[in-house]
Design a protein around this nucleic acid. Sequence first.
DNA 1: ATGACGATTTACT
DNA 2: GTAAATCGTCATA
Length: 207
Amino acid sequence: MDRIPRSFLAVDPETLARRLLGQRLVRTLDDGTRLAGIIVETEAYLGVRDRAAHSFGGRRTPRNESMYASAGTAYVYFTYGMHHCVNVVCGRRDEPVAVLIRALEPVEGLDVMRTNRAARRAHKQPLRETDLCSGPAKLAQALGITRELDGVDLTRAGPLHLERARTRPLPRAAVVNTPRIGVGYAGRWAARRLRWRLAANPHVSRP
DNA sequence: ATGACGATTTACT
DNA sequence: GTAAATCGTCATA
């Protein structure tokens, strides 16, 4: 209901990664169905100096062009030949910094999420609620997020947007800060603690 | 035209 | 724990 203003998103990626925790990501389907979850895990990507970022060294291609858009834009990329992941861009134009949404606690449209997630599995094993959105590609599958949504404005009601679910900052003890996942190739940048997650939340990708 | 590589997930040993 | 799946994307030629 309550959209998130651009000013809330136009901050450095470390600040944004931390403050997105507890907020809501909403996917609205063409028929009006809402699929939504509370953000419980994020990672900051620091731009041209960050070896792990797609924009490292100023790399700018059709794939990552929306990282260079202004704060509040969605950067949706495709990887491993089969997975999509969503970022919230937070820089000014031409400053390619963003926050990767890594996990959600599902709160709306769980039945559709279950269908979306089950569709791509060969051996239909039981799908627990904590398997729905507990990873960046899992949540993209569950919410039906693809490259079609790359570049959308996350501050306006639309096919994909952010909503305020919490006004007060989270208590310090409710948040855990760790190194990022899956960026072992990034040398010293792999060790930097640029991942944030809610403590004691079962919907995160990994403890 | 070709080849190497993933900001991952799943299944299997 | 390890490895397969799977292909768009980009750099090199």
